[in-house]
């Protein structure tokens, strides 16, 4: 029997938080070695809740570290983030998350 798609949940808090400046944003394509993300505003007392769906096992701690760094670097707060992953490496995850944020900054107007 094949293994099931895994769902990881992280609750993180930035050192110097500021609220996500958008309601809703979707970014990315779940190609091989890639991922997509939804970022939404949600009142979480300054925290960020991140749900990751991934076929890969054994990298839960790497996910936590990658996401922690992202949240701390961006100071993101009060946000719910959902990621559909298909074997994206940490560099791709980081790049896509930053690109998604940049898209928010540009008013969600870029289509890459």
């Amino acid at each position: 029997m094949a293994k099931k798609l895994r769902e990881l949940t992280f609750e993180l808090k930035a050192e110097s938080p500021s609220a996500l400046p958008t309601d809703f944003l979707h970014y990315g394509v779940v190609g091989s070695g890639d991922m997509e993300v939804i970022m939404e505003h949600q009142e979480l007392a300054g925290a960020v809740r991140i749900i990751v769906r991934t076929p890969v096992a054994g990298f839960d701690e790497v996910w936590r570290r990658v996401l922690e760094r992202f949240v701390n670097q961006t100071g993101m707060a009060d946000a719910r983030i959902e990621i559909n992953d298909n074997n994206a490496t940490p560099v791709v995850v980081t790049l896509r998350l930053h690109q998604a944020l940049a898209e928010i900054a540009e008013g969600g107007a870029r289509h890459v």
Binding site: L5, H26, V30, N84
Partner: peptide
């Protein structure tokens, strides 16, 4: 019926495959 609706495949997760919104 875009990503916001999260209409992803109910079958792929059972097979351990990645889904898309």
């Amino acid at each position: 019926a875009g990503p916001r609706c999260r209409l992803s495949s109910p079958h792929l997760p059972l097979l351990g495959e990645a889904v898309e919104f």
